[in-house]
């Protein structure tokens, strides 16, 4: 009896429900680029823009205040490299272009490729750190035992809010030897 009023609707409803399942599965994956975009805009996860920014307009240097930048370097677990910055902390005027050199040494007996990934804390400061040139835009191939001096040129966006007086830029060096050998490019340098 109930079949009379239920059967015709069932297939339509099942189709709709299955479509929502597929949609939600796709939504799970869509959250990945959404999250990245969200973090890029807000700096929530401390990721800095990994492509070259336009140079600073020298006229816009804000000499009325100083921002302190602390540099922090680490190598990922299991990567026998040395990686350091020439300075630990630096005071700059917003808008002023500065270069900081980083040094990496491959302590192993084989050729390797590394990749440094930046992170800024607090994340709020991340969008205001503008790099015009950085070793971190590319992989860093280092022959066995070699040392490389790698420059990073940057300026702090003069729009940075007044309450951010200090922020930390941290670089983690990852082993990308295998990925590089397979031709997988991790950091997009095309921009």
């Amino acid at each position: 009896m109930s079949e009379q009023h239920s059967k015709p609707d069932n297939s339509k409803m099942i189709t709709r429900l299955l479509a929502s399942v597929v949609l939600m599965f796709a939504f799970g994956f869509a959250l990945v680029p959404l999250y990245e975009k969200f973090c890029e805009v807000t700096g929530f996860n401390g990721r800095t823009n990994n492509s070259a920014a336009a140079g600073s307009d020298g006229n816009l240097v804000d000499t009325t205040r100083l921002v302190t930048i602390e540099f922090h370097t680490r190598v990922n677990r299991g990567l026998p490299w040395e990686f350091s910055s020439e300075v630990r902390r630096l005071q700059v005027h917003p808008g002023e272009t500065t270069t900081v050199n980083f040094t990496a040494t491959n302590r192993t007996g084989r050729d390797m490729t590394g990749q440094a990934l930046p992170s800024v804390a607090p994340g709020e400061a991340a969008p205001y750190l503008l790099k015009t040139e950085c070793f971190c835009f590319q992989n860093q191939p280092l022959a066995a035992g070699d040392t490389a001096v790698m420059p990073m040129q940057f300026y702090v966006d003069p729009d940075i809010p007044n309450h951010i007086r200090t922020f930390t830029l941290s670089y983690m060096m990852y082993d990308m030897t295998e990925a590089a050998a397979q031709g997988r490019v991790v950091v997009d340098t095309s921009e």
């Binding site: 399942v21 599965f25 990934l117 983690m172």
Partner: peptide, 30 residues
């Protein structure tokens, strides 16, 4: 119906991160 597919998605990402060289959750790969 709303969240089990998201779980399916996230375990799939774990699987591909572990075995198929994707980097959804691996900072080294972005």
């Amino acid at each position: 119906i709303a969240v089990m597919p998201v779980l399916a998605g996230v375990v799939t990402m774990v699987l591909t991160d572990k075995y198929f060289a994707t980097s959804f959750f691996d900072a080294a790969g972005g």
